[in-house]
Computed example of a mutant assay.
Amino acid sequence: MKYTILFIATTLMLFSCKEEPKSWQHSKTILVEGVNPIGIAHTPNGIWLSDGDHNRVVRIDENGNVEESIDSLDRPMHISSDGYEISIPQYGNDVILRWKENIVKEMAIEDSLDAPAGIWRTGEETAIADFYNNRILYSKDNLEWISFGKEGKAEGDFYYPTDVQITKDAIWVADAYNNRVQVFDKSGNFQKVIGVDQKMNAATGIFVSETALFVTDFENDRVLVFDHEGTLLQEIKEHIAKPTDLILIDSKLYVANYRTSELNVFEWKTGAAMNEEAHSHEDHEH
Rank of each mutant, 00 (worst) to 15 (best):
M1W: 14
L6Q: 08
L12R: 03
L14S: 12
F15R: 07
F15C: 11
S16E: 12
C17A: 15
K18H: 14
E19C: 05
P21I: 12
P21H: 11
S23Y: 08
G34W: 06
V35I: 14
N36R: 14
N36F: 15
G39Y: 02
G39H: 02
T43A: 00
I47D: 00
D53Q: 13
H54V: 07
V57D: 01
V58W: 05
R59H: 06
I60V: 07
D61P: 04
E62L: 07
E62T: 10
V66D: 01
D71P: 03
D71G: 07
D71E: 14
D74I: 13
R75D: 08
M77R: 15
H78I: 12
D82N: 14
Y84T: 10
I86H: 00
S87G: 07
I88D: 05
Q90P: 10
G92D: 03
V95S: 03
I96R: 09
W99K: 06
W99P: 03
E101M: 14
E106P: 03
M107D: 04
P116C: 08
P116I: 05
P116G: 08
G118H: 00
W120V: 04
W120N: 15
E124L: 10
E124T: 11
D130C: 05
D130V: 04
N134L: 01
L137W: 10
L137R: 08
S139M: 10
D141P: 02
L143M: 13
L143H: 13
I146S: 02
I146T: 02
S147F: 06
F148M: 03
E151D: 11
E151C: 09
K153I: 10
F158A: 02
F158Y: 08
F158M: 02
Y160S: 07
Y160M: 09
T162K: 14
T162P: 06
D163G: 06
V164F: 02
I166K: 00
K168S: 15
D169V: 03
I171T: 00
W172Q: 00
V173A: 01
V173W: 01
A174S: 11
D175S: 02
A176V: 06
A176M: 10
Q191T: 13
Q191D: 13
K192N: 14
I194H: 07
G195D: 05
V196S: 13
Q198I: 07
A202G: 06
A202D: 13
A202F: 14
A202E: 12
T204F: 15
F207N: 11
V208M: 05
V208R: 02
S209H: 03
D221V: 07
R222P: 11
V223M: 08
L224Y: 05
D227E: 01
D227Q: 01
E229H: 10
L233A: 02
K237Y: 09
T244K: 13
D245Y: 04
L246E: 00
I249H: 00
D250Y: 03
K252W: 07
Y254W: 03
Y254D: 00
A256M: 01
T260L: 10
S261D: 04
L263G: 01
V265I: 14
G271K: 01
M274F: 11
N275V: 07
S280H: 13
S280V: 14
H281V: 08
H281T: 11
E282Y: 10
E282D: 09
D283F: 13
E285K: 12
